[in-house]
Simulated scan of single mutants.
Amino acid sequence: MSIVFTVGYEGTDIDRFVRTLKAAGVQQLADVRAVAVSRKPGFSKNKLAAKLAEEGIEYLHFVALGDPKPGRDAARAGDFDGFREIYGAHILTTEAQDALRSLTEAVQGAPTCLMCFERDPATCHRTIVAREVSEALDFDIFNLFADDPERYVRHAAKLPRFHPCESVTAA
């Protein structure tokens, strides 16, 4: 079984964030934010992409998989049922389904981590996206927490690893 990672950058800085990705063996970061701008230094799209490139990690942005503003507002207000309902409808849109197919293809090629802001995967739409990908590919989901990358260094042998999908050839 292979793996898709998820991570939020809430409560961390860019250096710990990147160390966490590297410790887990991530080669691609799939940004699933609708708006890839952040007040946190280093997490806006262009700076993040440049930092990741320096570290050998590819940056991919899937705007259509971002949580629409009403969903973000509901989550911010603590209305997680409302948030899930809004995002559940959004992910069924043509644009989101096209982006989901593209993300699923990308995830098959290299160890990939889905990223959004929220630290807690239970309250973030990236978990919904990760479930869709994992069901399509029969992958497991592993949630990373970027505030203490050393935990992944200390326990590196216990981390799940990516196994490329084997293609089936016609006989």
Rank of each mutant, 00 (worst) to 15 (best):
I91S: 08
H163N: 09
D147S: 05
T127S: 15
T112L: 09
Y152D: 03
E118N: 00
A122L: 15
V168F: 14
V18D: 01
D98I: 05
G78Y: 11
P149T: 01
S167T: 07
F139I: 01
F142C: 06
H155A: 04
R84I: 00
R16C: 08
S2Y: 03
P70C: 12
A24M: 04
Q97R: 12
R126K: 02
A99C: 03
V107D: 09
R151A: 07
L48A: 04
M1V: 03
T104D: 11
F5L: 09
Q27N: 12
E166R: 05
G25T: 02
F162L: 05
G56P: 00
Y87K: 05
F145R: 10
I91M: 08
G25E: 05
F145C: 10
K40W: 10
K45N: 03
L60M: 02
T112N: 10
R19N: 00
E118W: 03
F62T: 02
P41W: 12
R131I: 10
I91V: 11
Q28H: 09
M115Q: 12
G88S: 14
A106R: 13
E54G: 04
F162G: 06
D138Y: 07
R19I: 01
T93P: 07
G78S: 11
L103A: 12
V7F: 06
S102G: 11
Q27S: 13
V153F: 04
D148K: 13
F83Y: 15
V107G: 04
I91C: 03
A53I: 01
E166S: 07
Y87A: 00
H90M: 02
E150W: 11
Y9A: 01
D73N: 15
Q108M: 14
E105C: 02
E118Q: 06
R151N: 09
H90L: 00
E95I: 05
F80W: 12
S38P: 03
G11P: 01
T104N: 10
E166T: 06
K158P: 00
A49P: 06
K158N: 13
H163K: 08
D140G: 11
H155P: 00
D148N: 14
A50H: 10
K45D: 06
V153N: 00
A99I: 00
N46R: 12
R131S: 09
A171M: 11
P121V: 08
V32P: 06
L137Y: 09
A122C: 09
Q97K: 08
E54R: 04
V129E: 14
V4H: 08
F139N: 02
L92C: 09
Q27G: 12
L144G: 10
T20G: 01
F117Y: 14
D15F: 04
I14Q: 13
A170S: 12
V107E: 08
A171E: 15
S167F: 07
P164W: 13
T127P: 02
T112C: 10
D120V: 12
P164G: 13
H61I: 06
D140N: 10
A23Y: 14
P111K: 15
A74F: 09
L103R: 07
A77D: 14
L48I: 04
A24R: 01
T112S: 12
C113N: 06
C165Q: 13
P111A: 15
L21M: 13
